[in-house]
């Protein structure tokens, strides 16, 4: 399965990058997502309930980021397991560029499904992936675009404790970055270095989650 898409998000590039790397934002925007957690500097885990047609499968997945260029691009490899239903794995690339005041987000996803999902899900994988991607970006757009940064604070902050609790599992250097990333969404970044780091992470998070979501969705489509 291959999916390529482009969306223009009505927000500045740095804001998009930060949001894409914020587990709280991702959890809220990915359809059926129960949790996104940072387990390492470049590694996230995600849990989601995939509902496609008659399928109700709980998936848990891992996302690894690479080639991270803050606020610009990153690559992600992901692997998701739906227990008896099968598994999905793949790779995704995301690039951000300025589009006037807005941000153009270009993504490509290559994914494959295995197990029963592969047996029965192959037929509608592309449709399912596209559907999930559309749902994600609609929610993401809604999260970023209509609201002022101040307005974003409340929902983001309410979810922030989740990611903060996850951080102790991470090494110290990582958890610092994580903390910064979590804080950045609610407050405007103060230093470019931390901003970049945060953005990279955000992008990776978002991409990974998106990729996992797409893989899972694809797999779930019978």
């Amino acid at each position: 399965m291959e999916l390529t898409g482009e969306v223009v998000i009505n927000a500045a590039r740095t804001r998009v990058w930060i949001a894409l790397n914020d587990p709280a934002v991702l959890t809220a925007c990915i359809p059926g997502c129960e949790a996104v957690e940072q387990v390492g500097p470049l590694e996230k885990t995600a849990r989601m309930l995939v509902k496609v047609g008659p399928v109700r499968a709980k998936f848990s997945g891992r996302i690894l980021m690479s080639d991270v260029v803050e606020s610009e691009r990153c690559a992600m490899t992901f692997e998701g397991s739906g227990g008896a239903a099968g598994m999905a794995r793949g790779r995704s690339q995301v690039e951000l560029s300025d589009e006037g005041e807005s941000t153009r987000l270009h993504y490509t996803v290559q994914a494959s499904v295995a197990g029963k999902l592969g047996l029965v899900g192959g037929r509608m994988i592309d449709g399912a992936a596209k559907q999930m991607a559309d749902q994600f970006f609609n929610a993401f757009q809604l999260h970023l675009a209509p609201a002022q940064p101040d307005a974003d604070k409340l929902p983001t902050e309410s979810k922030a404790p989740k990611s903060a609790q996850v951080q102790p599992l991470v090494t110290h250097s990582r958890s610092e970055d994580m903390t910064v990333a979590g804080a950045t969404v609610t407050r405007q970044p103060t230093s470019k270095l931390t901003d970049d780091m945060e953005w990279l992470r955000v992008k990776w998070f978002a991409m990974g989650v998106l990729a996992t979501a797409i893989g899972v969705w694809l797999g779930a489509q019978l």
Binding site: G53, P54, V55, R56, A57, G83, A84, A85, K116, L117, V120, A220, L222
Partner: peptide
Amino acid sequence: TLLATLNMRLSEP
């Protein structure tokens, strides 16, 4: 569709 889905454990209502 439902029985096949249940037997493949793609759904567990």
